Simulated assay, not measured.
Amino acid sequence: MKQKTLILGAGSFQKGLISYLKDQGFYTICVTNKPHEISALEADKVLDVSYLEISEVLKIFEQENAAQIFCVASDLALPTQSAVQSHFKLRGLQKEEVDFFANKWNYKSLLNQTSLAPITRRVEKMEELADFLEEVDLIIGKPKSGSGSKGILKISSAEKADLLPPKKLKEYIFEGYIEGNELGCDLFILDDTIAYACPTHKETNTKGVPMGHLILSGLQNESLLVYLNRLKKALKLNDGFYNLDIMQQGEQYYLLDISPRLGGNCIPEVIHLGYGVHEYELLTKWFFQKTISPLTVSFRKNVGVYIIHSEEKGMLLSKEENNHPFKKHEVELFWNKRIGDTIEIFDQGAHHMGYFIFSANSNEELLELFEEIKSYSWFTLEKH
């Protein structure tokens, strides 16, 4: 009889994980209140239940006699995953870890006395925000909890009074803006040692939402590894998987965000192609306490992902699937939206339309391709 696994969520982020688990002979049960989403169609069984209902998911896990529970790319699903893993004494996250990383101030405050992250403040009055703006030229305001770049603000001294109601101040943390090259990075710590660190060059839109991840040669280097080991020590990171956002300024690095999970936006797929690291395989082995051989990780191939999105709201009238001009570079193209769906403005990660994964022969070609792919008309909308 096949071992059963629960997967929380059914968006495009879960598609690769479900396919991998099925290939490995697991029976996959997708728990989602959106049973018609793309990943639900891949699963062996779909249960129309919100993964936020922890007590219901605990019941499902027991009734199905499941062996493990997975969540990738979703901070919202982490409390449910940790509750199940803790209750049934499975390897995975503990509630204390999830609670710690759920509030950005917990880890940013620990790093304030180091050079490992931007200067960060909590603010209760507009006057305190003005004082902070005397220390730095520009501030990034972030909700203390949440992900997907939702609610992020750039605040200068001229704009601060209009961007955020005073009653909202306590819900935010504020950090000094650092100019540089933004990186994503998936990190796996095993036996208190960094087993791998796979960085990506990150492209964002004007709202600060990621619209691409590119694997370029040279992103992996000794200075990054030194930084990550310092960060690991400062935050006392336990064994497990982490997704980080980092700003690189020369050979200096600064932590923007961290979450105890694999990255979204097809990051595991891109990392597999670009670095040869199979994150779904490693995650599964770790969860089931299987032996993990020492990893040799290095750059292998230029590959990237473009997140198909819209800057306007409307109804999807058409989408390009077969006749685009990037065929020779295509690795995979899949859409998260159907004709007739309402398309939202891309102001948070959940509002994407799909992904295009592509490869190139050099850093320069990959960067040039990304600009061409970004400017291509992948769809048409009937605008609202």
Rank of each mutant, 00 (worst) to 15 (best):
I140S: 01
S145G: 15
S149R: 00
L169H: 03
P165T: 13
L138Y: 01
T114S: 15
I119G: 01
E127F: 06
E128Q: 15
L153S: 00
I155K: 02
S147E: 03
S157A: 15
K150V: 00
P165Y: 10
D137E: 12
K150N: 07
G146I: 06
S147Q: 04
L164K: 02
K125F: 09
S157R: 15
L129W: 09
K167V: 13
L116N: 05
A158S: 13
A117W: 07
E159W: 01
L138G: 00
K168G: 05
L169E: 04
K168F: 10
T120I: 08
P118G: 11
D137F: 02
I155V: 15
A158C: 06
K170W: 01
E135Q: 11
L116P: 05
P166V: 15
P165F: 12
A161Y: 08
K142T: 09
E135I: 14
S157H: 11
V136G: 03
A158W: 06
P118I: 10
E134W: 07
S115T: 14
A158T: 08
A117F: 09
K144G: 05
L116C: 08
G151E: 04
T114A: 11
L111E: 09
S147K: 01
I140N: 02
S157L: 15
G148N: 03
S115V: 07
L133E: 04
K168T: 08
A130Y: 11
E134Q: 14
I155S: 03
S156Y: 00
E135F: 10
G141V: 06
K154F: 05
E159K: 06
K160I: 14
K125T: 14
L138A: 01
P143E: 08
L116A: 07
V136W: 10
P118T: 10
R121K: 12
N112F: 06
G146L: 11
V123Y: 03
E134M: 12
F132V: 13
K144C: 11
L169Q: 03
P165A: 15
Q113L: 13
L164A: 05
S147G: 05
P166I: 14
S147C: 04
G148I: 08
I140P: 02
E135H: 06
S109C: 09
G151F: 01
G148K: 01
P165G: 12
E127D: 14
D137S: 10
L129I: 12
L133S: 07
K142A: 07
L153W: 00
G141A: 15
G141P: 05
A158I: 06
D162S: 14
L133T: 03
L111R: 09
P118K: 10
M126F: 08
S156W: 00
L163R: 10
K168S: 13
S156R: 01
K125E: 13
S109T: 05
